[in-house]
Design a protein around this nucleic acid. Structure first.
Length: 271
DNA sequence: CTTTGCACCTGTTGGC
DNA sequence: TGCCAACAGGTGCAAA
């Protein structure tokens, strides 16, 4: 579920609940996530204070005053909810981070997500160390994208979704940004002009920012039901609109498959 | 090194 | 109405 906007919204939602607070316990009901949850997680975290909550790509990073970091990834179906600690867990509620009377509850039906304890410098963690720039930072611009496209025969959409090039661009936003930039997802990256890269970089930024704003305005309290994924659905220009008319020219949106991922485009607007 | 396809899971959907 | 295959927003990793 979570694309970068949902992860960013989750990050902003949990930040005030965690920052400066001490974890009073951890309940692990199911440790079988993408990677097994550390069996010693409870003893490592109990009594430890959270000093900061941030995000890198789609990883949530909870900095601890012990110098360690708790890394949480929501995978495809994960969510964090803020509920009273005595709320009976439902199916797929795998982990609770206890905060006195309340807790942060991790739910993940597909269990593609992860909860990892990183004792050392988190920026050196194997999962983070090779990541490309954040799409909303100065580290990502059209020149970075253009350079990454040089000489590549792979489809531009594949490059946009490559975490070594830029992080956080999932399937939905790759499709949407390509439409906004007028670039066909199947176009070989090496044939994408500097000008098109300019439009793509801007479109990625605008598309993500718009979604984050939509999420932020939906989100008043990060409590209970609001923490669930898909809580802000927005209008997509092409994603999931196979056979429906393009909003710009009424040509029917086409569907194709690129590296096992659904791709949608307007054959008239995108070249 | 690049590129491709698989694997990890469960829940939902669409076609027959 | 019922059943089952196909598919779902991620992404690390093995294999080619």
């Amino acid at each position: 579920m979570p694309e970068l906007p949902e992860v960013e919204t989750t990050c902003r939602g949990v930040r005030p609940l965690l920052t400066g607070h001490t974890l009073t316990g951890v309940r692990v009901r199911c440790a079988r996530l993408r990677w097994p949850v550390d069996p010693e997680l409870a003893s490592r975290l109990t009594g430890v204070r959270v000093t900061a909550v941030s995000r890198r790509a789609k990883y949530l990073l909870m900095a601890l005053d012990s110098g360690a970091t708790l890394i949480i990834h929501l995978g495809m179906s994960g969510s964090l909810r803020h509920v009273p600690a005595d709320t009976p867990p439902e199916r797929h509620d795998h982990v609770d981070l206890l905060l006195g009377e309340h807790c942060l509850r991790y739910r993940d039906p597909r269990r593609f997500g992860a909860i990892l304890y990183c004792p050392g410098p988190v920026e050196l963690h194997p999962l983070l160390v090779k990541l490309g720039p954040e799409p909303l930072s100065d580290g990502f611009d059209s020149e970075v994208l253009f350079a990454a496209c040089r000489g590549k025969t792979a489809a531009i959409k594949t490059v946009l979704m490559d975490n070594h090039v830029v992080v956080g661009v999932g399937n939905i936003y790759a499709n949407e940004a390509l439409f906004a930039a007028g670039v066909r997802p199947t176009r070989p990256a090496g044939q994408v002009s500097r000008d098109a890269c300019q439009r793509l970089a801007a479109a990625i930024r605008a598309t993500l920012l718009r979604a984050i704003e939509a999420g932020g305005s939906t989100l008043r309290d990060f409590t209970d039901a609001i923490g669930k994924p898909g809580y802000f659905q927005q209008q997509y220009a092409v994603y999931g609109r196979t056979g429906q008319p393009c909003h710009a020219c009424a040509t029917l949106v086409q569907h194709t498959r690129l590296g096992q991922r659904s791709s949608f485009f307007c054959p008239h607007c995108q070249t």
